[in-house]
Simulated assay, not measured.
Amino acid sequence: MKTYQFLKGAAVASLIGLSAAAVQAEEVIRAVTFTPAQVSFSKNFMKFVDLVNERGEGVVQIQVIGGPEVIPNERMGEAQMNGIADMFLLPAGLYLNLVPEGEAFAGSNLDPMTAREKGGLDLVNEAYHAKANTHILAHVDGGAGFHLWTTEKPGTTADGQVDLSGLRLRTSPLYRAFFEELGATIVVQAAGEVYTSLERGVVDGTGYPVSGIRDFGWDKFLKYRIDPGFFQTDVLISINLDTWNGLSDEAKAIVEAAAIEHEKTSYEANLVLNETESKALADSGIETITLEGEQADLFLNKAYDIAWARLKERDPTYHDQLKAIFFEDF
Rank of each mutant, 00 (worst) to 15 (best):
K2G: 08
L7F: 14
A10R: 09
V12N: 08
V12C: 09
A13Y: 08
S14C: 15
I16K: 01
G17L: 14
A20S: 11
A21M: 08
A22T: 00
A25F: 03
E26R: 05
E26Y: 06
E26N: 05
I29N: 03
Q38T: 14
S42I: 10
S42V: 09
F45K: 07
F48V: 09
F48A: 06
D50R: 10
V52T: 12
N53Y: 07
G56W: 12
G58S: 06
V60F: 01
I62F: 10
V64P: 04
V64F: 08
I65V: 15
P68T: 08
V70F: 15
I71D: 02
I71T: 15
P72C: 11
N73W: 01
G77C: 05
E78W: 02
Q80N: 11
A85Y: 14
M87G: 03
L89H: 01
L89Y: 01
A92M: 01
A92W: 02
A92Q: 02
Y95Q: 04
E103I: 15
E103M: 15
A104Q: 01
F105M: 10
G107E: 05
S108G: 09
L110P: 02
M113Q: 11
R116H: 10
D122P: 00
L123I: 12
V124A: 05
Y128G: 04
I136V: 10
L137R: 10
H139W: 15
T150K: 12
T150Q: 12
K153V: 08
R168W: 04
R170F: 02
T171S: 11
L174V: 02
Y175T: 06
F179P: 00
E180N: 05
A184D: 08
V188Q: 07
V188N: 06
V194H: 02
V202F: 10
G207Y: 06
Y208D: 09
Y208T: 10
P209F: 06
R214D: 10
G217R: 13
G217M: 12
K220C: 01
K223W: 09
D227C: 04
G229D: 05
F231T: 11
D234G: 03
L236W: 03
N240L: 10
N240I: 11
L241P: 00
G246H: 03
A251C: 13
K252E: 09
K252V: 08
I254A: 05
V255S: 06
V255H: 06
V255K: 04
A257H: 06
A259Y: 03
E261V: 02
H262R: 01
H262Y: 13
K264R: 13
K264F: 08
Y267C: 02
Y267V: 01
E268V: 14
N270A: 07
L273K: 14
N274C: 07
S278D: 10
K279R: 15
A282S: 14
E287H: 14
T288A: 15
G293V: 13
F299P: 02
N301P: 00
N301K: 15
A303H: 11
D305G: 00
D305Y: 01
A307T: 10
A309Q: 15
K312V: 07
E313Q: 14
E313T: 13
R314G: 00
D315T: 10
D320Y: 10
L322V: 12
K323Y: 09
F327N: 03
F327W: 14
F330C: 00
